[in-house]
Write a protein that binds this DNA or RNA. Structure first.
Lengths: 353, 353
DNA sequence: GTCTGGCGCGAGAGCGCTCTCTCTTAGATC
DNA sequence: GATCTAAGAGAGAGCGCTCTCGCGCCAGAC
């Protein structure tokens, strides 16, 4: 019975070894190896002979053996805690992967995704990553103060985060300009004549949640309006939390005239509540979301939103990790990518003059 | 410069080896090894000494070395071609992963996700999987006749598919009862008095697309209605294709009174078109989707849909693979899981009497 | 003709681990 | 007290590969 323990089972199909390839090609193992490591010191005919032999035997180099001696795996781990895949139900995740892959493929590195489902999974994951299964680790969207990145970092494993961690940390990261994006959104609302502007925040134990709130506050203050905590209501980026938060805000401020939501999904929930309360959007209340996800164009009215360069974030994460792998020094670096406001019907200026 | 080539670089942090742990614990390497392989023949005190030494040195067994001798990696690959993550933009993907993880975690196996982004990626993937990086492979939702599963199978690698391949194949798979689900949906429409029932199909080079169409046809025929190809319009599971297909169907049959869509997302598109043509749903036209995704409850009216047990599919895939790993014989087995119809407003019987 | 240099190649060590085989020793049996 | 047994530990081989070292050979310089 296959127990996932550590006991040797007979290989069902014992793969050919380099030794056999070399013998068939009539060369030494060393020469055959040189062919597969693309080493220059091989004659054309030896190379051809080895290649032919390999093809004939359907030889594939044993990765474990190679890793054992080189200390390298040529693969990169991407860790995505379970909730993330849902939070941004939207293309966030595949877009990020696409950006990362674009860079890694060029270097012939294999991207390996890891989705811990539980705390137990995550503990095991630390062992997996520490055991030399990957050359470096990318991680996204940590809730609270996930200790994993720092622990890996402490082990000398190269780590790059997507989205800044909520605390301070020596680990390198790439983030989008959440505060800047939020500020753009709120400045746009102020510019449209709104004065009683509420916000539905993300979880405040995540960098993205904190920074988007900060951007909102900055814009409110700089716009000469008063920041008032009763105009702020926390959500968790999910739709239901948008519905509930909007309700709470309307209870406190029936006359609010705009709401900035830290995610499109929450904004969709907010729209639902506004509709139920017969608020016209954008006439009575303007709404702006964040993420510019596909949901933004399918709501009625279509949602203004802050667009983030997800693919670019993936690319930068990969580049940063590769640079760290090259440089023999790790950590510290951070890259912030610009965000952009996309205005749609939900906050149209014409909504109210 | 880190090239992803095959050249040894100095390890930034050279991890402690078993040898060092053994020395610190005052035992031989063999005894130390026994501790980590949970072998029974170790005295309590030797075990404790080794554990203490390991902790002190922060020792993690080198996986490559272990794999080299055991021939096992204790990890399982899950291959998801890029389009899939989009197609079922919805929780399909995380739900599947959750089901799989549930089973694998219990065996302490690591799930590794692989998302080839291009044909080049896929070619490289074959090498990766063949090189002994994983003990077995799970694959989902193949477009057309993807040769990868059979090639891996041919190499003696254990493979289990999620969703039957469109052609015939010796590779084991788990699938939901697509035909049965479609049949339920159409029987429900017929039971509601509908007679001019159209369908928007999925891509017909995918098992799911083919089978859902087949179920539709069977139900139509058995309901005593005529199957008529002009009532069938192909889509690609995406929203836009639903919009367009519905338009084509209305052009041909302005008086159709129901439409069965092979995905919820296409159904949402169909609803859009129906609304634009002033068809009331369900009064004039009843609509049923497939997948019972979150979108089904957020459309207006809410969408009747066929529910599939995604988590269960993940679990069964994992179980089948583990069984195959145990049994030393591979392939052949197939498991079909029941689907279920969830009736909502879009096909309410009261819609028309 | 000799000397030099570099190219191509083979021999062999060794990466870190598991596992088999063998040895030691303590306890059980007579 | 002698013999047997089995539990616990160590020695050592070897998994498949890469890489260093050094040897032989031939082209070009003198």
């Amino acid at each position: 019975m296959y127990k996932g323990g550590v006991r040797a089972l007979p290989q069902t199909v014992s793969n050919p070894t380099l030794e056999e390839v070399a013998k068939l090609a009539g060369v030494s193992r060393a020469t055959a190896s040189r062919v597969f490591t693309a080493s220059p010191r091989v004659s054309r005919q030896a190379k051809r002979a080895v290649e032919r032999a390999a093809e004939k035997l359907r030889y594939v180099p044993n990765r474990a053996a190679r890793t054992l001696v080189t200390g390298r795996t040529d693969s990169i781990g991407l860790v995505i805690p379970e909730p993330t895949a849902f939070l941004f139900g939207d293309p966030f995740f595949p877009r990020l992967v696409r950006g990362i892959s674009e860079v890694l493929s060029r270097r012939l590195l294999q991207l390996v995704l890891l989705m811990p489902q539980s705390t137990a999974d995550e503990a095991r994951l630390e062992g997996y990553l520490s055991a030399g299964h990957v050359d470096g680790v990318l991680m996204v969207s940590l809730h609270g103060n996930d200790p994993l990145p720092e622990r890996l970092y402490g082990r000398g494993i190269r780590v790059v985060l997507g989205g800044r961690p909520s605390g301070s940390s020596p680990v390198a990261y790439v983030d989008v300009d959440n505060a800047g994006g939020a500020r753009l959104a709120v400045e746009h609302l102020i510019g449209g004549g709104r004065r009683r502007i509420a916000t539905i925040t993300g979880p405040l134990d995540m960098g993205a949640g904190i920074d988007r709130l900060q951007g909102y506050r900055d814009a409110i203050r700089e716009g000469g309006l008063a920041t008032d905590a009763s105009f702020q209501q926390a959500g968790d980026f999910g739709q239901v939390s948008g519905v509930i938060a909007m309700q709470a805000l309307l209870d406190r401020h029936p006359d609010l005239d705009a709401v900035f939501c830290a995610s499109d999904v929450m904004a969709a929930g907010a729209l639902e509540t506004l509709r139920r309360h017969d608020r016209r959007v954008p006439h009575d209340v303007a709404v702006v979301g964040f993420d510019d996800s596909t949901i933004a164009t399918s709501t009625a009215p279509a949602l203004s939103s802050v667009r983030q360069p997800i693919e670019e974030m993936g690319r930068e994460m990969a580049r940063l990790l590769l640079a760290s792998l090259d440089s023999e020094t790790s950590g510290g670096k951070r890259i912030i990518l610009a965000t952009e406001l996309v205005v749609r019907a939900s906050s149209a200026k014409g909504g109210r003059e």
